[in-house]
Nucleic acid binder design. Structure first.
Lengths: 195, 195
DNA sequence: GTCTATAGAAAGATAGAC
DNA sequence: GTCTATCTTTCTATAGAC
């Protein structure tokens, strides 16, 4: 049997990568508490022992999975001027229950119940998506408006995809996009109109 | 020993009520997966067996806890005209990490990772807060705008209280209220301005 | 009406062989 | 580099005594 006979047999880096991918999938689908180390191991084609060998513990595995998942942009583009319309459209498309099930917001919402997972995710938000979005906004309170935009994204993802409430899953996508575009626009301005 | 010697000894209704109160507290603090039947029982001063005797299973106990928790209004008032400012003020006050830790949104956010819990909560939202808020809004798409408002509430609660991100916990409450008031206002109108 | 005791399953983590 | 086997804990749920 050659070394290329089986995928990544006796290849530490490839095995580690396979475990990490399986972990992202499992944590996104079932959350921190709902995903087991055995389950991740089986999906990666290894035993549970190897997971702890490479990552130390379930908690550290989760931390790496979160960091990887949060590193790439999801619904926020690069153009500040087009932000409201573009973000609203992407949000409506990706929160459809039939959409791609692998994204950082599902991972976040399904793991938020665990206190340790919440800490890990708070730090990852500050390092990745929070920083990215803050850079797109202008004004003195850009940081807090950026996190309010994140709140809206997470909230819509919760109601429309995780809880799947009828009024949002059945809503017309175009009208939904209009409403959300208005919301994001209200948060793009540095100072709101004081009533 | 008289029958009033100890609180609710041999009083089925009072014992049941004590268990339900303890369950709401535990599920709100730790979520569906994080709260154990033993823990609930101990807080109510009974054994774990009684919990299942009165409620059948952990899942049914959770269903009753959710229904009770979602039944009363939290941040949405009775006056439609004052909705944006009043809701924004209440939301900022109650999502402060030092605020009262017993509310339906924390219960919801910390339990959303469990699929069965998500179903139970979806139904409770339709029965209680979704119906209440829909009644306050006018226009043909009131139902979907009501759930968008709920999305904003839940999202802010997640970021500011559950995850406790620095930019939101450290933000000036007055300015936060202004921003959120603008967001709610954008969702109060039946049809948004098309770009 | 409430208890003790326990069944039965599943979790995270580790020891030690090859 | 990866395995089998197991330790220890924790969970929900139930049987049966008083």
């Amino acid at each position: 049997m050659s070394v290329t006979d089986q995928p990544r047999r006796r290849d530490a880096a490839a095995t580690r990568e396979a475990i990490l991918r399986a972990a992202i999938e499992a944590f996104t689908r079932a959350g921190y508490d709902g995903a087991g180390v055995r389950e991740v191991a089986a999906a990666a084609g290894v035993t549970a022992m190897l997971v702890n060998r490479y990552f130390g513990s379930k908690e550290q595995l989760f931390a790496e999975a979160v960091d990887r998942s949060f590193a790439a942009p999801t619904v926020v583009g690069a153009d500040p001027a087009a932000l409201p319309a573009q973000l609203a459209a992407a949000l409506v498309a990706r929160t459809d229950p039939a959409s791609e099930p692998l994204n950082p917001y599902l991972l976040m919402l399904r793991s938020a119940g665990n206190p340790r997972a919440a800490e890990i995710m708070r730090e990852a938000i500050g390092r990745h998506v929070g920083r990215r979005l803050t850079g797109l906004l202008t004004g003195p309170d850009a940081g807090e408006r950026a996190e309010l935009v994140l709140s809206v994204i997470a909230g819509v993802w919760l109601m429309r995809d995780v809880l799947a409430t009828p009024a949002l899953t059945g809503a017309d996508p175009g009208r939904l996009k209009e409403h959300l575009s208005g919301v994001i626009q209200a948060l793009s301005r540095p100072s709101p109109d004081p009533a």
